[in-house]
Amino acid sequence: MGSGPGEHLHVEGATLLHRMPAHVKLVGMVAFVLAVVAVPSPAHVVLAGLLVLAVGLVLATRVPARHVLPRLAVETPFAVFAVVLPFVAVGPRVQVGPVSVSQTGLTAAVALLLKGTTGVLAAIAFAVTTPPRDLVRALQHLRVPDPLVLIASFMVRYVDVVADQLRRMKVARASRGFSARSVRAWPVLAAGTGALFIRSYERGERVHLAMVSRGWSGRMPMTSPLEATGRDWAAGLAPALVAALAAATVMMVS
């Protein structure tokens, strides 16, 4: 049996970040990322400093690098965009080695890479230290509307069940000599996907029945509330505060 995407991410541990209440971490992470984004693009040195801070956060989780580094792949599309940007942007040109690139494009590209990497690292530091269940509780605690919390919670719970179903369908197809080699296989794959949708929909109906049968009335009961002290909040918001101060300083100086 496989495990959910959340579990691939989360790594058990006992560091400060592991112990911090999930809702504090979530607020701190989002605030940090927003503050980093708010730093004006030309301030590369400040952005590099914040990147170092994000690297520090990831290091503080004590999660092995081989677990963290592959997660950075999610940034690839942005990195590609950043590489292309100096060549396609307009405005004054500068010589970088043998090629001439756009000045503003280059500035924006470096900033994009720095900000993007910082954001992804912050998200990784959050994800590797927060079990999926706590993420759901954090959303609930932060008064995210119930339907959204439920969708997140059901995804955590059922992604494996659905993946299992998909695997069984694949085995059943292969057992009857099917292999997806050409375009002609597409109708079969499409029909399989459709069947999976219908099965998931029907499961949804049965789950709803089971929920209603146990007294569900449209509101998710908060069974184990998260608790945070002032110190937790101070620690959780510290990186965001540093980034916000940096952003404000750069804005006032320039």
Binding site: R133, V161, R206, A210, M211, W216, S217, P221
Partner: peptide
């Protein structure tokens, strides 16, 4: 099908769902 009945992320949350309601 217990997979229909158990819809919360952990066993504890699931068993608590009914009495919490």
């Amino acid at each position: 099908d217990p997979d229909d009945q158990l819809f919360m992320p952990t066993v504890r949350d699931d068993v608590a769902f009914g009495p919490a309601n």
